[in-house]
Design a protein around this nucleic acid. Structure first.
Lengths: 230, 230
DNA sequence: GATTATAAGCGTAATTTTTACGCTTATTTT
DNA sequence: AAAATAAGCGTAAAAATTACGCTTATAATC
């Protein structure tokens, strides 16, 4: 110890990996990529990168997201550290896994072509390299837990959405049916949705009113002690 | 990329830091240490260490705990990665913070002498080095959130405890008073405590029966869909 | 052009959970 | 023996959750 404190320690490679979730067709989906390098070249993998010398870890995850989807400012949060010494046969690498939530919109096919990426159903995930399956499973657990107490579900929906769409999302997350009428009652009673004049008519004959999540209102309520729970 | 994939990346120092909580005198407490090295020698700090080349990250945290308290097998869980590039003026170090829960028992004074450690009230935490205060605040939040849905509080109590003791712990964690009668009703209704014959008479004239957390019973109930919530 | 089918949307009753709080009990202190 | 204290038990009121019937708007079908 002492003067040599920092010199005596052995540095390790530090990576970030991103578990990217989306929602489409009433299903929760995961974005996976073909690995470009050996070992395991061409196998399905989470997208990741090494953390650069002067780069914040979270910034590295954001960079990876932008490089792999073209999107900035999407929901991104740390999942945890994967630090088993032998987890990567290529070298001693610890990975800080992050999970991201994005709206799947038009560029979906472009994504696939440009980045060799593909959306998988979360209950049909192919074999993944290293400990990536474990990361995905943990991310799913975390998403399920977190979605209940924080309004993060909206990150997966378009800005304007219907109550039935929102319910369908929660049914996908929780993997269980929710009563239409009670769900609507509960979410509306929170008073964090803004009702719009427009209706979405793509999903039903009658059509359903579009709503928007009101972040300011939500934060105001939270400041007064409100707890989101769905 | 390609063959040089791993070679091109720049390795970083990886540390673990431990936020160690205890409970004594109806107060939640935090174990802090005098830092042994420069910079910030002698200032209050979390206990930590660099992750060794062939060591799992979690194992490093466990090693630190054992070296600093003499205790093995205490509750330990990852808190998160602290990865701001400039967080440590001594070098580029990322730290994986962990939080630990321990029973404060006899060796408390020994700890202080042997390891230059001291238990602080969680609402009277002194200035800490680097981003350690931030880590502690996050750990407190996580503890408060997690204690509500997982029976981790028992890790902070002696094996045998009374209902009023348990309530006092939760009052300390949540920083609010809980109704004696409703608290008892709720925790007993879960059917995860085993009532003992003995009474503890140190805290009241009448004395209170001792209980023990029944882990097997708890796990059995969880398997059947039970959700702990306090 | 009327009828049917479908999902949206509104309401109400039953049930369960939470909250508030009174009363008794065992023991120590006065 | 009386008073004081915290443990422990019970019950009623209030709030939240659950179950589910009915109406409505629209597109598809007859």
């Amino acid at each position: 110890m002492g003067a040599n404190y920092y010199q005596e320690a052995k540095p390790l490679l530090v990576a970030v990996d991103c578990i990217i979730f989306g929602f489409a067709g009433d299903q929760l989906r995961l974005l996976l990529f073909r690995r470009k390098v050996e070992p395991h070249q061409n196998e399905w993998s989470l997208i990741g990168s090494f953390v650069q010398e002067e780069e914040n870890v979270l910034a590295a995850a954001n960079r990876v997201l932008e490089e792999s989807t073209g999107l900035r400012n999407i929901f991104l949060q740390e999942l945890g550290c994967y630090g088993i010494a032998e987890r990567d046969p290529g070298a001693r690498v610890i990975s800080i896994a992050h999970f991201a939530l994005m709206r799947i919109e038009e560029p979906s096919e472009q994504l696939a072509d440009r980045y060799q990426a593909h959306w998988f159903d979360t209950d049909q995930i192919p074999n993944l390299i290293l400990d990536h399956r474990e990361m995905v499973m943990h991310a799913l657990e975390k998403l399920r837990r977190k979605a209940r107490y924080q309004p993060i579900g909206f990150e997966l929906l378009p800005e304007k959405f219907t109550i039935p769409q929102l319910r369908s999302l929660y049914e996908a997350i929780y993997q269980k049916e929710l009563d239409r009428r009670n769900f609507r009652k509960k979410i509306l009673s929170m008073d964090i949705l803004e009702k719009l004049e427009e209706k979405d008519k793509t999903a039903s004959k009658k059509g359903a009113f579009l709503y928007r999540f009101n972040l300011e209102k939500y934060q105001e309520l939270v400041a007064k002690g409100f707890n989101f729970e769905l």
